[in-house]
Amino acid sequence: MSAPSANALDRVQSGLAALNPKSIAARDGMPAFEIEAEQVREACRLLRDACGFETNTFVTAIDHFPAEPRFELFWQFLSVQHNDRVRLSARVTGAHPHVASIGDLYPGTQYSERECYDMFGVVFDGHTSHAGGLKRLLMPEGYDHFPLRKDFPHQGIEPDKLYNAWFQRRFERHEREHADV
């Protein structure tokens, strides 16, 4: 049996040939490709249908602030039948990045996409896990900031905000419950 990584490299190179991906020498030795952000859906569809990668293991981002393009997004895939992995990356610019969701191709990415949105503010267009679209995963609803961004101070941008929001909700509930007393 040949080395699994070389195997994956060949499969992806022939499978994604139409998209002309740029091969990257990753330090961990995993086959990695950079593609254009607009091609993400097409690339993931090809990885699933033509290259045998059945599973997505994570979706995440790196904030290169203050450099531009600011965000580097990552999708990592596992092929159970071939026992190998591949990583896709794409760069997006600006403080309000958008990229296409792959939640319908790989249903397992829906939590990862919500987490990536919650922490980095990357909006995944066409995300379908909720009727209302993309929702936060870890931070409470109504929080306006994205904690893993490089320009986020670790004590938070508005440290009182969550407390006051909590108090306000509690106060409203108290008023509701005691309305008829």
């Binding site: 203050p66 320009d151 101070p153 670790h154 004590q155 941008i157 440290p159 009182d160 407390y163 006051n164 108090f167 106060f171």
Partner: peptide, 22 residues
């Protein structure tokens, strides 16, 4: 009391000049 501010232990904010004020 409500609107009591959250106690912080000094600012550790690392902000580049001109970016979001804490």
């Amino acid at each position: 009391a409500p609107n009591h501010s959250v106690p912080t232990r000094g600012s550790h904010a690392v902000l580049p000049p001109g970016e979001l004020a804490p």
